[in-house]
Design a protein around this nucleic acid. Structure first.
Length: 500
RNA sequence: GGCCCCAUAGUCUAGAGGCCUAGGACGCCGGACCCUCAUUCCGGAAACAGCGGUUCGAAUCCGCUUGGGGCUACCA
């Protein structure tokens, strides 16, 4: 057991573990965010604790309408559920930070009264100038502390001028982050400047709000991305100034794009929504995300969410940033494509079928068609493609296929002959179909394959696909015969339109 | 620039001093199977960033260098 965890999960008092995922509603649910949410969720469930969803909407200017709803939907689609949140409430609400500003303002006042923070009247322009000056001298851009030095009777304190509230950061000593993943990380206080706690519009800055909200929501473990590690000492300083207990921290490695830079739109699909649209199953995405930064102790890679809950352990979280690899995601998806229950797969593929306006109400049984298609599809998009010929007659024939399999001048008559034999078949199943082809090939003195390939091309328009006899069995007798005759006619009348 | 984190194959990772002539997975290459494709099954190439220590012994510990990432906002 992890030393750092002892004392909170053991013995009499038994404090319940509470974690949270606190996204900012400024866009879509990112795979990085989804991974953070997932790890929080797994940690909570593993320890029989609670998982809270909190919306970090302090910055009104950056708020994107619909973003929160999208994130909630995205998380739910992945099977990540929370015990408390803006959509379901809970005893520690409200769960939108914007609804908690009064609470934040009270705390700011407390710090002000205690002389642990101060009002700063420097204008953004002044600060900008100062920053530029420092940078040009290759000095770290920090706030000078000008307003901290103002005498208490400075008339500006009585004025109506807008101000921000800044933290009085101690110039000496060090602040230590005991990170559950990285261990002891030491920051010297003198590196920090007097950072802003409250903006001039009266709303709190993230670093301040997060401290109060985590405390108010009784969060015991703050599990978040590594980009927050450097800000943690500021937050610890706030906890101390407010005399609040400091939670445990765990900073997850980041997920980077293939070019080793931070994930962004230009890297293609980066949101959960986009992966859904591309036909990635939620189960596969979750499983893939799970492997980005965490591994089971026994090399197991494909696992259920329940297994992940059982095995999850922060001690096994990687320290190094991970680069996401679409190829492995797609492979993972193909694994789920062929193993999830057929009913589930039907539910997933139906929207794709609908969006292409493929009418599956007539024709072969969808489940049987899917069984043949899932084996050779990596995504739902591919599956839908593999399904189309069952419900739509080929409008054209693969060009290469025509050259190869329709070249023989006897092709039309052979297809017709096959149609005749097939029409008379009493039992339409795999074995009987094989028998027909064997017999036909024998009579013609050719190989069975010489009949199989033209048939597939004639019936599906393609050269690739399921085994012919499985395919015909599902397609049905009437339809098969009709398509063979159609193809024969098309060839004879030179109507063969090659697929470009 | 300053501070912080990180460093095993192209990628995800196992590895917590001898079990490592470094294991698994994706991808890649070759082969087998087969009516095509996809599977599946065999086989193969491919890594401990570099340099110094510590130690009988280092991928594992320490230092430096290099490289990558993060933070440094009245963003989160």
């Amino acid at each position: 057991m992890n030393k750092l965890l002892m004392g909170i999960s053991c013995s009499g008092g038994k404090r319940v573990i509470r974690v949270r995922y606190a996204p900012s509603p400024t866009g879509t649910l990112h795979i990085g965010g989804a991974r953070t949410a997932l790890f929080n969720y797994l940690f909570a469930r593993h320890h029989h604790g609670q998982f809270v969803l909190r919306v970090e909407d302090t910055d009104r200017a950056r708020l994107v309408p619909g973003s929160e709803e999208g994130m909630v939907a995205g998380l739910r689609s992945l099977g990540i559920n929370w015990d408390e949140g803006p959509d379901i409430g809970g005893e520690f609400g409200p769960y939108r930070v914007s609804e908690r500003v009064l609470r934040h303002q009270q705390a700011v006042k407390r710090l002000l009264d205690q002389g642990l923070a101060y009002r700063c009247y420097c204008t953004p322009e002044e600060l900008e100038q100062e920053r530029k000056r420092l940078e040009s001298q290759k000095l770290p851009p920090r706030y000078s502390g000008k307003c901290r030095l103002r005498p208490p009777n400075d008339p500006i304190f009585q004025s109506d001028e807008p101000f921000v509230v800044r933290m009085k950061v101690p110039s000496k000593g060090e602040t230590v982050v005991n990170d559950l993943i990285r261990g002891r990380v030491v920051f010297e206080n003198r590196i920090l400047d007097d950072f802003v706690l409250q903006k001039s519009d009266g709303t709190p800055v993230y670093n301040f709000a997060v401290v109060l909200d985590d405390h108010d929501m009784a969060i015991t473990h703050v599990i978040r991305g590594e980009e927050h590690l450097s800000n943690t000492p500021k937050q610890i300083l706030i906890y101390e100034a407010l005399n609040l207990p400091v939670p445990q921290f765990a900073h997850l490695p980041m997920i980077l794009a293939p070019d080793h830079t931070k994930l962004s739109k230009r890297h293609g699909a980066t949101s959960v929504e986009e992966y859904r649209e591309q036909g990635i199953l939620p189960e596969a995405l979750v499983n893939y995300l799970l492997l980005l930064g965490w591994s089971a102790s026994d090399d197991t890679e494909i696992m259920t969410l329940d297994q992940a809950i059982e095995w999850f352990d922060l001690n096994r979280v990687q320290h190094t940033a991970a680069i996401y690899d679409i190829k492995k995601l797609v492979w993972m998806n193909s694994q789920y494509m062929r193993t999830i229950p057929i009913g589930t797969l039907i539910d997933y593929v139906l929207p794709f079928i609908k969006s292409r306006q493929l009418d599956v109400s007539r024709g072969p049984d969808l489940a049987r068609a899917i069984e043949l298609g899932r084996e050779r599809s990596h995504t739902l998009l591919e599956l839908r493609e593999a399904l189309t010929f069952f419900y739509e007659r080929p409008r054209s024939f693969d060009e290469q296929g025509v050259k190869k399999h329709f070249a023989d001048e006897k092709t039309p008559e052979r297809l017709r002959a096959l149609a005749q034999s097939l029409k008379k078949l009493r039992v339409w199943d795999h074995d009987h179909l094989v028998a027909v082809y064997d017999e036909e090939a024998k009579q013609l003195g050719i190989k069975r394959a010489a009949l199989i390939h033209p048939t597939r091309l004639a019936v599906t328009g393609k050269t690739v696909g399921p085994g012919l006899f499985e395919l015909l069995e599902v397609l049905g007798q009437e339809e098969t015969v009709a398509r063979l005759l159609d193809a024969a006619t098309a060839i004879t009348e030179q109507h063969v339109k090659p697929t470009p």
